[in-house]
Amino acid sequence: MADTSDAGAVLGNQADAVLDRDGLDALVRVLKRRGRTVIGPTARDGAIVLDELESADELPYGWGVELEAGQYRVRRREDGAAFAHSAGPQSWKSFLHPDRVRQWTTDRRPGGEIAVHEEKQQSVSYAFLGVRPCDLRAIQILDRVMSGGRYQDPAYLSRRAGAFLIAVECTEPGATCFCVSMGTGPAVDAGYDLALTELVDDAGHRFFCRSGSEAGAAVLAELPHRGADDPTRTAATEAVSAAAERMGRSMPPVDLRTLMRDNLEAERWDDVTARCLSCGNCTMVCPTCFCTTTEDVTDLTGDHAERWRRWDSCYDLDFSLLHGGPVRATPRSRYRQWLTHKLSTWHDQFDSSGCVGCGRCIVWCPTGIDLTEEAHALHQEATQTESAP
């Protein structure tokens, strides 16, 4: 057990360590003892989902996933790994930017007076265990969107403030992953409190752990661990490097921002329109899509009403509704809006891409539309147009 008297010294002198399963169990216990709500992956209802964990035993040990466009299936693994699965149907957005948030309530009192009560946001001390590199980048993007500008979202801030992030580097990417193309993984280099690299080999089942903040170092100091050795560091580095070579998808090696901007009238948009259902699944599972709308509800007496904010999608026909009709009335225009915003005009708003390469939109599209395939097709069409006499 490391000395807990000087967390700063731990951060400065022992930035990495090795945990076994007992150390991972202790990590959850320490975080809960510190008053944090621990959220992590667990196997339930035929998927790897994110939920509150009471102990590390609830992690999906021995479960992996098989992914393809429009397909998701969990499968048993023989090695007992806890984090050898790709992004599931949820992202951390579900906890930081929930799908429904009540904004205020109003009541009509017996004398006819109307009383309005603003909803007070309850602060939650979260600890997120198992944040993939792509999702770590997604949280950073949401930070910029929800709190980095002139208008800040108090509901987001109350959940994000002080959240403890435990990243897990990716050593086994899925068939729909393309984080390398987006520069978001499979390694992590910043933005975490603790980072884990899971290793299962002849040397045993262990987790190479690095602290990235004083808060992370303080937690690490309370865990049973041993100092990291060079073979473990090398194995961790090689496992992550190997994952980078096994990405299931890739984007074309061009400036995606320019590709989208200069091909708004490409014929390929008609091709994808024939397949897109405008269901909005891709926006719901995307870890960075943030659009919302508001709706008012009332009870049967009419004396009590509430305003709720809920997720919305740019695929909804009414999303761009103005006087006279919707601005984007066709599936073609709505898909084009989503893809060009995600890969291009997001830069104009928030100084980064809105895509992190997690592949969720590919997996959870009921017709298997693949944005990497669409980007390659747009690039190919643009190249053929440029070379035509």
Rank of each mutant, 00 (worst) to 15 (best):
D6L: 01
L256P: 05
G227P: 12
I141R: 04
R268N: 08
R102T: 14
E66I: 07
T292D: 13
E265L: 12
G64P: 09
F290I: 10
M284D: 14
R249A: 12
I369K: 00
T184K: 05
E374C: 13
V285Q: 07
A388C: 11
E214C: 03
L27V: 09
R360N: 01
Y126D: 03
L339T: 07
Y192K: 15
V356T: 10
F164D: 09
P89F: 06
G280I: 01
V180Y: 14
R160S: 07
D20N: 05
D45W: 02
Y126E: 03
T176Q: 08
W364Q: 03
Q122T: 12
D193A: 14
A2Q: 09
A377V: 08
G174W: 02
Y192W: 09
R100P: 04
G112T: 06
A7E: 01
W308C: 04
G174M: 01
R108K: 09
F178K: 02
V240F: 03
D229G: 11
E386V: 12
H376M: 05
C179D: 01
Y61S: 08
F208W: 15
A115G: 13
K32L: 09
T197P: 02
H205V: 07
R360Q: 05
C177T: 10
R144Y: 05
H205S: 08
Q337M: 10
I141S: 10
M182V: 00
G357Q: 04
D45K: 07
L371Y: 14
A388R: 09
E198M: 02
C289Q: 11
T340E: 10
S158R: 13
E52K: 14
R268V: 11
I39E: 14
H347M: 12
S55Y: 07
T105I: 06
A127Y: 06
F83E: 09
V28L: 13
L194E: 03
V30F: 15
L199H: 01
E119S: 11
